[in-house]
């Protein structure tokens, strides 16, 4: 589902790359949380799309590539780890920044900490690390600053 851009001009200036508005894809199954992340970025003038599962995400990236993706790791269906690998290998996304945004930081789901996550994504072939790994709960400012830094703003 596509988000709309609701921003003021000064914010739009911050969210552009040579006058083109940065595009962000939020992959999150919890719709309320997805709306929050969407609001944080849209308030700064970014163009935001959201996907609630892996299939929706893969359909969206098959079109125009986002500049940045936030990815939840725990979603029904395809796991975030598998989806991360698929996104990293996707030809459209070679210049896309990927930020993991997850509540996972223990081992009840077989994942614990960033190191364990990285070990798992590395199984079955080398794949590059995420550009950032953020754990919930997260402040809106931290999320925004992370994205701005990754987008060279």
């Amino acid at each position: 589902m596509a988000g709309t851009i609701t921003h003021e001009h000064s914010q739009a200036d911050k969210a552009t790359k040579s006058g083109v508005i940065f595009k962000i894809l939020v992959i999150e199954d919890q719709s309320q949380y997805a709306r929050f992340v969407q609001s944080v970025f849209e308030d700064q003038g970014y163009h935001v799309q959201t996907a609630s599962n892996a299939e929706e995400a893969m359909q969206l990236v098959a079109g125009e590539a986002p500049d940045l993706i936030t990815l939840d790791l725990l979603m029904p269906g395809k796991t975030g780890v598998k989806l991360y690998r698929d996104l990293r290998k996707h030809e459209n996304l070679q210049n896309t920044r990927i930020v993991i945004l997850t509540g996972l930081d223990h081992d009840s789901q077989g994942l614990c900490s960033y190191n364990e996550f990285f070990k798992r994504i590395s199984r079955g072939g080398q794949v590059s690390e995420p550009d950032a790994y953020l754990t919930k709960p997260i402040e809106a400012e931290t999320l925004l600053h992370t994205a701005q830094k990754l987008l060279g703003q």
Partner: peptide, 13 residues
């Protein structure tokens, strides 16, 4: 922690 994330998101909204 997950739900604190939800509450924090709610605060922002």
């Amino acid at each position: 922690k997950n739900m604190l994330g939800m509450i924090k998101g709610g605060e922002y909204q």
